[in-house]
Amino acid sequence: KRPMNAFMVWSQIERRKIMEQSPDMHNAEISKRLGKRWKLLKDSDKIPFIREAERLRLKHMADYPDYK
């Protein structure tokens, strides 16, 4: 399994928030909203998620050196 990218790290947190506020919302609608919100997010606000994704990528490389 591939490591999460910055969007996936961010969306995992945000998806939980949306599901708590709107438990009846369909997953497809949540995904659309997350995509739009990520695009509107300032680059500076994305930095912590980019760093976490990089950390996960490096850990994945160390844990699975033969992964292609």
Rank of each mutant, 00 (worst) to 15 (best):
Pro23Gln: 04
Met19His: 05
Pro23Thr: 03
Ser31Leu: 12
Met25Trp: 02
Leu58Cys: 07
Ala62Gly: 13
Asn5Met: 01
Lys46Trp: 00
Lys68Thr: 04
Glu29Gly: 03
Gln21Val: 09
Arg55Ile: 08
Pro48Leu: 04
Met19Gly: 04
Lys42Trp: 01
Asp24Leu: 07
Leu56Tyr: 06
Ser44Tyr: 02
Ile50Val: 14
Pro48Ala: 03
Lys68Ser: 09
Ala6Asp: 03
Leu34Asp: 00
Pro65Leu: 08
Leu56Ile: 10
Leu34Pro: 00
Ser44His: 08
Asn5Ile: 02
Glu54Leu: 04
Arg2Lys: 10
Asp45Leu: 05
Arg57Asp: 05
Glu20Gly: 06
Ser11Ile: 02
Asn5Trp: 04
Met4Cys: 02
His60Thr: 12
His26Tyr: 02
Ser31Pro: 02
Pro48Gln: 06
Gly35Gln: 15
Glu29Thr: 06
Glu20Asp: 07
Arg37Ala: 15
Ser44Cys: 04
Tyr67Gln: 14
Lys36Ala: 13
Met25Val: 10
Leu40Asp: 15
Ile47Cys: 03
Ile30Glu: 01
Asp24Ser: 10
Lys39Gln: 08
Tyr64Ser: 14
Leu58Asp: 12
Asp45Thr: 03
Ile13Gln: 10
Asp63Gln: 10
Tyr64Asp: 14
Ile30Tyr: 01
Tyr64Ala: 11
Ala28Ser: 13
Asp66Leu: 10
Leu41Thr: 01
Gln12Leu: 09
Pro48Ser: 04
Asn5Gln: 03
Gln21Pro: 01
Gln21Ser: 09
Lys36Val: 14
Gln12His: 11
Pro65Gln: 14
Ser22Gly: 05
Pro3Lys: 11
Arg55Gly: 06
Lys59Asn: 10
Arg15Met: 09
Lys36Thr: 13
Glu20Ser: 04
Arg16Pro: 08
Arg37Gly: 14
Lys46Tyr: 00
Lys17Phe: 05
Leu58Tyr: 07
His26Val: 12
Pro48Gly: 03
Lys1Glu: 06
Tyr67Asp: 14
Met8Ala: 14
Ala62Ser: 13
Trp38Ala: 00
Leu41Gly: 00
Glu20Trp: 03
Ser44Asp: 08
Ser11Ala: 13
Asp63Tyr: 08
Asn27Asp: 15
Met19Ser: 08
Tyr64Gln: 11
Trp10Met: 00
Glu52Leu: 06
Arg33Trp: 11
Arg16Asp: 08
Ala53Ile: 02
Asn5Pro: 03
Lys36His: 10
Ile18Glu: 03
Arg15Gln: 06
Arg15Ala: 05
Gln21Ile: 10
Leu34Met: 01
Tyr67Lys: 15
Trp38Gly: 02
Arg33Gln: 15
Gly35Met: 15
Arg2Cys: 12
Tyr64Ile: 11
Ile50Ala: 09
Lys36Leu: 11
Lys39Tyr: 07
Met4Ile: 14
Pro48Thr: 06
Met19Trp: 06
Ala28Asp: 10
Lys36Gln: 15
Leu56Gln: 11
Arg16Val: 11
Lys32Asn: 10
Gln21Arg: 07
Lys1Pro: 03
Met8Arg: 09
Ile13Asn: 09
Asn27Leu: 10
Lys36Pro: 02
Gly35Cys: 15
Met25Gly: 02
Ile13Arg: 05
Trp38Tyr: 03
Leu56Trp: 03
Ala28Arg: 10
Pro3Cys: 07
Ile47Phe: 08
Pro65Lys: 14
Asp24Lys: 10
Glu54Val: 02
Met19Lys: 13
Pro65Met: 09
Ser31Gly: 09
Tyr64Gly: 13
Ile47Trp: 07
